[in-house]
Design a protein around this nucleic acid. Structure first.
Lengths: 219, 219
DNA sequence: GTCAATAATATTGTATACAATCTTATATCT
DNA sequence: AGATATAAGATTGTATACAATATTATTGAC
């Protein structure tokens, strides 16, 4: 899959940041990381550059690169954009979705239901991801699809935690029904609203998001 | 402003791509470019990596990097997203804009009018950019602001050409009035629609965009 | 004792040299 | 003559060495 070690290392470091192995504000020492990954500074610097451009780390000239976890405010901002992007995808998809994709969407939704019955959050997350990706794709706008996926990836760790809260999966599932319904009947406004509401962080979800900051996997 | 030569070179190459000094599909030879800019391959590769991640050039492993000008379809996709982003900024700004910013918005709009009277497209473009940036900023969402500016920059060369078409500036100006009106009265839906319509590429604008592909500066 | 200046240290930024990989051309075999 | 295999060439990818710059520590003067 990967062609060069640099991109591979970028992904690995990103994982370490997402999993909080690297704390916020921590400096990423080029030389130490190079030794850790068994490479020279050159590919490691390329990896750090990539992470800098995607906003996961911050580079201060002649000082070093530092981990930059989004704070609550920035995270809320990102979720706000995410909900708008998804709602746009839904709006466009309502008018553009193909019959085949609609069938696949139903199928993905069924798999979500099965995961819910087995009360398997991880499985639900995966099936849910496919469900949403079908909608991104059926927006008929490749650029929008790519951008939405990019942000989705960045928010993934936080969404995953959210699904762990009691009742969240059930609520998510019932919202899916409204989305499918709207897309099936070509109701652009309905799809738009259903998706915005599905993704946006408001009410209880806000508190859950803030709470997720302090969650330790131990408990 | 710049700290390292690599980022500086990235901007310069980007300019060359935007100004079509580098044709679509053209290979960017690392060694030749390094000589041209008087640096070694290392900073030049960093520059190319940056451009790759922003999508301006495409990197094929072990083959090289190639200029990748968006085709008409991709460009339409990007404009569709741009109009939606702007409309979101407007929707949010309608509820969040400060009195001071509203005053600045009026002022920026006045300057646009002056540029229109002098029939100075370049001046109009600059003032217009400020006008829009105030709205992005007053969305109260920093992440949205950054993302919108990023896309705006990428579409800049095309928007600039569009403004050259007869009557386009006058039309743009009258649309501004509706935007200011909506934002002043806190009309979220009005601002949303006005901005989407202002930016989206439809009708005549579509043909102008397609036509701009074949425009030579000589004529 | 405190402030400033200079030296020492550490870290990033760049250049060059080398290795790996892919493409292309040529030669040989069927 | 065509196809395949091998070798030559070109280009990217990586390692290492060096230069520039910023930070910190130390020394000296007031």
């Amino acid at each position: 899959m990967y062609k060069n070690r640099a991109d591979q290392i970028a992904e690995e470091i990103q994982e370490l940041v997402f999993s909080r192995s690297f704390q916020d504000g921590e400096r990423l020492d080029e030389i130490r990381l190079a030794k850790r990954f068994g490479v020279s500074r050159t590919p490691l610097r390329e990896a750090l550059k990539k992470l800098t451009l995607s906003g996961i780390v911050e580079k201060i000239p002649n000082r070093g690169v530092f981990v930059r976890q989004p704070g609550p405010i920035e995270l809320l901002d990102m979720f706000e954009v995410m909900s708008e992007l998804e709602s746009i995808c839904g709006k466009l998809a309502a008018k553009r979705i193909t019959d085949i994709a609609l069938k696949n969407l139903h199928e993905a939704n069924s798999k979500c239901k099965k995961a819910l019955k087995k009360s398997n959050p991880d499985s639900y997350y995966l099936e849910n991801e496919l469900f949403h990706k079908i909608i991104y794709n059926q927006s008929g706008n490749s650029f929008l699809e790519r951008e939405t996926i990019k942000l989705q990836k960045r928010l993934e760790p936080f969404r995953r935690i959210q699904l762990r809260f009691r009742g969240r999966i059930e609520q998510s599932m019932s919202e899916h029904e409204a989305i499918v319904e709207a897309l099936s009947s070509g109701d652009a406004v309905g799809a738009e609203c259903a998706l915005r509401n599905h993704v946006s962080v408001q009410g209880d979800k806000f508190h859950q998001l803030v709470a997720s900051f302090n969650i330790k996997e131990n408990y």
